[in-house]
Write a protein that binds this DNA or RNA. Structure first.
Length: 104
DNA sequence: TGCTTGACAGAAG
DNA sequence: CCTTCTGCCAAGC
């Protein structure tokens, strides 16, 4: 992966995340795929954590495919609940109700 | 250069 | 809810 690609990838990630409407969530894998790197889901999380500027994005609206919140980020769930997102009894986000993908 | 980590995905116990 | 396994890939040591 070249520096130019990495730059574009991070740019796309921020662009996509910034479009997530309130009360909706999307997944790392989806974002990675939309950015053109289907297998780089991990890098999405890495980007959101290390990239300056990602903090102004609704990055808490990004969860994994089963609605599981990020380990080591305790604020994740409260932030989602504050937006009216419903959590199932198993502790996961109700994806079939809140899942969203770009350009819809 | 090679091994370990991780805001991951998904299946399994 | 938790832990563990495999596959994935960039970053850190």
């Amino acid at each position: 992966m070249t520096a130019e690609e990495a730059c574009r990838f991070g740019d796309d990630v921020m662009n996509i995340v910034s479009q997530i409407p309130r009360g909706k969530v999307t997944t790392y894998g989806t974002i990675a795929a939309l950015a053109g790197w289907p297998s780089h889901a991990r890098m999405v999380g890495r980007t959101l954590r290390y990239t300056p500027g990602a903090e102004q994005l609704p990055c808490h609206r990004v969860v994994n495919k089963v609605g599981r919140t990020a380990p080591g980020w305790m604020q994740h769930r409260p932030l989602l609940e504050a937006e009216g997102i419903n959590f199932k009894s198993n502790g996961h986000v109700d994806m079939q109700r809140h899942y969203w993908e770009p350009d819809t």
